[in-house]
Amino acid sequence: MINYIIYVSFTDAAPDSITRLSTELAKYNIAGGIKADDGRGYFLPPGTFIYHGKETINEVRDAIHRLAETIQPGASVVATETTTISWTGLKEVPNPA
């Protein structure tokens, strides 16, 4: 499997565009959060997503761009293949009670 980080932004974004996109991408196991080695989860910055799959980087980029354009025209997408991810300052996903 290949690890991808994807960033999506919209020209003149409507207030709910990223939220709607996040909901749609979640249906395809494209997440707006990341899990640490200790099992704790963290929210990625708005418009940033992570995906593990076998598709090529161009297939991932193009599929997300097509979906984003159905949410709002004027989507920009950057996809990167990653081997190591490090972060700081991300908000932790609350642990459900």
Rank of each mutant, 00 (worst) to 15 (best):
K27S: 09
N95C: 10
E24L: 14
P94K: 12
T56F: 05
I18E: 07
K91H: 10
E69T: 10
I5V: 15
R61P: 01
K35R: 15
W87C: 06
F43Y: 15
N29H: 14
T84M: 12
S86P: 00
P94E: 12
G41C: 03
P73G: 09
A97F: 12
Y28H: 15
V60T: 01
V78T: 11
G32M: 05
I5Y: 04
D62A: 09
G32C: 09
T19E: 11
T82F: 13
A26V: 02
F43C: 04
W87E: 03
P73H: 08
Y7G: 09
F10L: 06
T70I: 06
D37M: 10
T70W: 06
Y4G: 00
S17A: 13
I34H: 03
G53V: 02
E92R: 07
Y51M: 00
A79K: 00
I71C: 00
S22L: 01
A36F: 04
V93H: 03
I64F: 02
R61K: 15
N29W: 05
S9K: 12
T84I: 15
L90E: 01
Q72I: 02
V78S: 04
T19I: 10
E59F: 03
I57W: 02
G39Q: 04
N95G: 04
I2L: 04
K54P: 08
L21K: 00
I34R: 03
T70F: 09
W87L: 05
S86C: 09
Y51T: 01
D38M: 04
I50S: 12
Y42H: 10
D37L: 12
P46R: 11
E24F: 08
V8D: 01
N58Y: 08
D12P: 00
R20G: 02
S9N: 14
T80E: 10
P73Q: 09
P73A: 11
P96A: 08
P94W: 06
A68E: 10
A79N: 02
